[in-house]
Simulated scan of single mutants.
Amino acid sequence: MTDTRTLVLIPARMAATRLPGKPLLDIGGLPMIVHVARRAKEAGLGRVAIATDTADIANAVAAHGFEAVMTSPDHPSGSDRIFEALCKLDPAGHVQTIVNVQGDLPTIPPGDISAAVRLLDEPAVDIATLATEIRKDEEHTAPSVVKLIGSPAGPGRLRALYFTRATAPYGDGPRYHHIGLYAYRRAALEAFVKLAPSTLELREKLEQLRALEAGMRIDAAIVDSVPLGVDTPADLETARRLLANN
């Protein structure tokens, strides 16, 4: 049985510049956003809803049995969008864990979503996320691959100390690729969206640094691989191949 105190939200907009109309692009006969919603539902964590500013997206997910909530088109980030959705769907404050699953991850393993949420069993953790060990040489130096620098905090988990696009940490040993899926305590999300963008956030162009600079604790579950993020026509074709038999 799913937990009524957990809400999984999937922000989805049509405004992607590199792949216009991305959430509704067809993968194996289904819109991409529906694949993501199915993965989130399979995680069995709680209520799943798509937060969108576009009626076409809302109608598409509703046609496949999923819930949509309309949000403002003016939000600067996905975090602001999911906070508005949370307030609309749960004004009484029953939900205590909010999971933000990006709408362009149609291959995200449901177990990885659950792994992030389990990190919140540790009371000191404000926000939970995912990371995987970098295994391709070129990814160590690629600015597009965000690195999570952290201290071991138990088996298969890191306490995040910093996030960067640079090659870090220095020296021998593993480096970790940050995967942008988040599970928030409600109080942490409420506090986060009230904060102004921080100095390091603006410099690195990484929103999660705002939370670290404000003193929040972020832990990451170490998972086996990075889910395919669909950002280009080539990514879309790869997703179609991977999901051809689903």
Rank of each mutant, 00 (worst) to 15 (best):
G215V: 06
A115H: 03
K147G: 04
G111D: 14
L24I: 11
E204F: 06
I57G: 04
Y170V: 15
T6P: 06
Y176E: 02
Q96S: 15
G215P: 03
D3V: 10
E204R: 00
I10Y: 05
T167F: 08
I10V: 15
A115I: 02
I108G: 02
L212E: 09
P106I: 11
C87D: 10
I50P: 06
D56I: 12
P123T: 08
G111M: 08
R175W: 05
A220Y: 09
G156I: 06
V101Q: 12
A49H: 07
A116I: 10
E204Y: 09
Y170Q: 14
P109F: 08
L19P: 04
L195C: 00
D104N: 13
E139H: 15
A214H: 09
A12R: 03
H178P: 00
P106G: 12
L242G: 08
L181A: 06
H177I: 01
D121I: 04
L206R: 12
E207R: 10
A239C: 08
A60Q: 09
Q102H: 04
A183M: 01
K205W: 02
L195S: 06
A37E: 05
E133I: 11
V34L: 11
F66A: 02
S144V: 08
V8D: 05
T107E: 05
K41T: 12
D231A: 14
L209F: 07
G93K: 01
G78S: 14
L195P: 01
R175E: 00
L202N: 13
T141V: 12
G103V: 08
A234G: 02
V117T: 13
L45H: 05
L243G: 03
A124L: 11
A142S: 15
N246Q: 14
R240G: 06
D231R: 13
F66G: 05
F163M: 10
E201W: 03
P169R: 04
E139L: 15
L212F: 04
R159L: 04
V95N: 03
E139I: 06
H178I: 01
